[in-house]
Design a protein around this nucleic acid. Structure first.
Lengths: 107, 107
DNA sequence: GCCATGTATGTCATATTCGACATAGCGCAA
DNA sequence: TTGCGCTATGTCGAATATGACATACATGGC
């Protein structure tokens, strides 16, 4: 049993229903995390490149600094939706976003 | 005033707080919608290519047929998270997803 | 040292999204 | 026509993500 791995994921905040589900879903789950990580670092990169503080970006998004911080940390409590909206708000084009996503390749 | 456009978006289920916010955010909002549309059609395309019914995909996702239908219709009630998870569950690679996103270019 | 600026982390009530279910529509074979 | 498989749409209570806020931490200038 992948108790160890499961525990690690859960400790990181990733909910896993039961062992079977875990085994069945772990692959996509892992890919999904990779994807979020890629987008998260993309947000930070672009934000800094634009010379924006987290608070400034938050204002653009009508969100809050804490949420931006969590987003860049790929916190499990932030959705892909918010990340995408952030990227678009910063001025990322679909092409830019596609490039970020391709970085989630491998794993 | 962009009353017409605003009304159209709201009729389609896109919440818009007030005129100023609308004017300020419409651009990203529109891009975001394009992006969801691109991913939604990607889900349908890949699902059909795999010979899966909505119900079958729903089962893989531990979701329901209705949610898959709404997802493919790019319903405002479905998140990008669910779309991404679906794509990954269907077997899309980051490269595939990137390609879909690039289709949201223009507008 | 202190203060300012920016970032990280935790919590909360509220808002949004969830899966589930019911049910309607649609195409097609018997 | 009826029946069947698949998809669409609407509505729920439950689950999750949200912005706001407080507060801790880090770095750098004074």
């Amino acid at each position: 049993m992948k108790q160890t791995k499961k525990a690690r994921l859960e400790a990181a905040g990733w909910r896993v229903s039961d062992a079977a589900a875990f085994l069945g879903l772990s692959d996509e789950e892992r890919r999904f995390v990779e994807l979020k990580l890629a987008l998260a670092s993309g947000v930070r990169q672009l934000r800094e490149r634009r010379g924006l503080t987290q608070a400034a970006l938050a204002k653009q998004l009508r969100s809050s600094q804490s949420r931006v911080a969590k987003m860049e940390a790929a916190d499990t409590s932030v959705s892909l939706d918010l990340m995408m909206r952030s990227l678009l708000s910063i001025g990322a084009t679909p092409r830019d976003i596609a490039k970020l996503i391709r970085k989630a390749e491998a794993a």
